[in-house]
Amino acid sequence: MVQVCFVLDLRSLAPPLLRDLKQSLLQLANFYAVSTSSSLPGRKSTAVTDKIGLCYLFKNRLSSSDDLKIAYTPTGNFNLRDFHHAVNNLPSDAFLPHECVKSDMMISKVLSDKVLYSWQGKDIERKVIFVTSSLPEDVDSIMQKSLTDAADKCVSVDFAVFQQKSSHLTDSRENVHNFRRSISHLDNCSIQTYIPDFRVLHSLVKRWLQVLKDDMEEPLLARLTFKDNLLDSVNHIFCNLFALVNPMTNSFSQCQVTVFQIHVD
């Protein structure tokens, strides 16, 4: 089972980008709810396993401190209405265009017993997708320890960095390069840069959905029989069928076939 936690750094996400990200998260939740409950024939239960978490970082205007807030916690069965409510209520005024925001300490707060490790489910794989437009120049000792401990707990951390277009902001390319070099020794961490484009977000939704669906259901066992023998007297194979993201094409479900056994009579 894979549990995905989205962490949005609202301090660095410009309003247009945040708006598109919110629509992408809503689309992901809709696809996940629909595909899980109806992807395989003969499925008795319509309950959807809750495998999505949502947190965000913001500047507390009263204390002037950087805070982490949990917007949606996976608790058992996925509640599409509550997730929509959490996404739609993300603060729209947290963007800090003239400040250099740093995410190092905040990542350590996410990777803690108070947040990620307290969520339901033991001995499962977890993935943190950290969405930001700003990264620290390097990784300090606290963050290094948090990321290393995360690897021991089967937690991977993906940094999705959306490059800024505004000319008045400092170019973050060098920071991204330095940050990538700082985490290069950590097998559980990766960093990808993107441009704020709807086609990029659409591709990310498909990728994230596939992560959620990879171990979602038991595969459908099928036997394929051929007119001519494949090898000696063997004329059939057994395989697993998995549903893909797009459920219907010309009234037929798409599937990918993986051969795992050849049976010889």
Rank of each mutant, 00 (worst) to 15 (best):
100 C>E: 11
63 S>W: 02
117 Y>N: 10
77 N>V: 04
13 L>V: 09
208 W>H: 11
159 F>V: 03
191 I>R: 02
99 E>F: 06
246 N>M: 11
264 V>F: 10
33 A>H: 08
211 V>F: 13
133 S>Y: 07
184 S>Y: 00
199 R>W: 07
167 S>T: 07
191 I>A: 07
25 L>G: 01
118 S>R: 14
182 S>L: 01
109 K>I: 00
90 L>N: 02
5 C>R: 10
241 L>S: 09
144 Q>H: 15
190 S>N: 07
88 N>A: 09
231 L>P: 08
229 N>Q: 15
233 S>C: 14
124 I>H: 12
166 S>L: 05
112 S>R: 06
186 L>E: 02
243 A>N: 12
130 F>D: 05
248 M>H: 12
24 S>D: 10
146 S>F: 00
244 L>W: 06
83 F>D: 01
220 L>P: 08
65 S>D: 11
175 N>P: 04
132 T>K: 09
99 E>V: 02
179 F>Q: 03
96 L>P: 02
2 V>P: 09
17 L>A: 08
48 V>W: 01
202 H>V: 12
33 A>Y: 06
102 K>W: 05
188 N>I: 00
136 P>E: 12
25 L>W: 08
134 S>H: 12
41 P>E: 01
136 P>I: 10
44 K>V: 03
73 T>G: 00
258 T>V: 14
126 R>F: 09
260 F>G: 12
110 V>C: 06
20 D>G: 07
147 L>Q: 08
46 T>Y: 00
239 C>A: 15
254 Q>Y: 02
181 R>F: 03
106 M>H: 06
178 N>T: 04
120 Q>H: 13
